[in-house]
Structures are given as structure tokens and as C-alpha cells.
């Protein structure tokens, strides 16, 4: 009896070949599969990007959006050597554009850093 080979026993323990890739890919698959956790990561990225956008918009409103009030407050400009219209001409005709460019440059760097942080988070798992 003992020589008889024991009946082959098959134990089904799951799907070894199609193991879910969760452990290898972590956050990335959470995002791909639309899980709660993945959604939270996307929300986090969106929040940081929205904050960057609102920040830039706030500075724009503060620096450029208040200019009409400034011009209204000093209709005569800065004394005899710079009349009111000449001041408006200098500010709106030239000085505003570098401000807009700096804001844009700052935002692009900030947004790209946010995205890099996010990628690091995903890859780092």
C-alpha cells in the first residue's frame, strides 16, 4: 500500500500567475483602477495645482488688477516731470509685461515641481 503513490493532490490557492500587481506598482495601480486611495492621490495633485493657479491669479489681481485704482488716485502722476497719462503709458505700455512673464515663469516651475513630486510619490512605492 505504501508503495502506491499518493493521489496527486491539487491545492487551489488562488491565481498565482495572474497575481494582482498591487505590490509592485502601489499607488500607480490604485490610480489606474480608480480606487478610493488612487482618487485621494489625484485629489491631492489637483489641490496643489489649483493652489498654484490661484496663487498666481491672486498676485495678478493684486499687482495689475489694482492699477486702475492707483491711476485714479494719482491723476496728476508724479509731479511735473511725469504727468498722469505719461505714468499710465509707462506702466501699461511697458512695465506690466515683465510682471506677467515672471508670474507665468514662476507658475510653470511650480506646476512642474508639483507634478514631479507626484511622480516621485508614485515611483517611490
Amino acid at each position: 500500500m505504501s508503495e502506491r503513490p499518493a493521489p496527486r493532490r491539487e491545492v487551489v490557492v488562488g491565481e498565482p500567475l495572474r497575481r494582482r500587481p498591487v505590490r509592485q506598482l502601489g499607488v500607480r495601480s490604485e490610480i489606474d483602477e480608480q480606487t478610493e486611495v488612487g482618487g485621494a492621490y489625484v485629489r491631492g495633485l489637483m489641490r496643489s495645482q489649483l493652489r498654484a493657479g490661484l496663487c498666481g491669479f491672486g498676485v495678478l489681481a493684486l499687482l495689475v488688477g489694482t492699477l486702475p485704482l492707483v491711476f485714479a488716485a494719482v491723476p496728476d502722476g508724479l509731479g511735473p516731470w511725469l504727468s498722469g497719462p505719461a505714468l499710465v503709458w509707462l506702466v501699461l505700455g511697458g512695465a506690466t509685461y515683465p510682471v506677467l512673464l515672471c508670474l507665468g515663469h514662476w507658475y510653470v516651475r511650480r506646476a512642474e515641481r508639483n507634478e514631479q513630486d507626484f511622480v516621485d510619490l508614485v515611483e517611490g512605492q
Partner: peptide, 26 residues
Amino acid sequence: LVLAQGTDMLWYPVGYTAGYLVLLLF
């Protein structure tokens, strides 16, 4: 416009440019 109405009209080009900044931000 600047000729006809003065330097306040320079808000047009500033607005056209700032519009692109807002586009970039959001």
C-alpha cells in the same frame, strides 16, 4: 485708440496678454 482716447486704452493689450497668463494658470 491711444491717439483718439489716450493712454487708458493701453488696457487692451495688457488685457490680451494677461488673458494668456490666466489661460496658463488654469
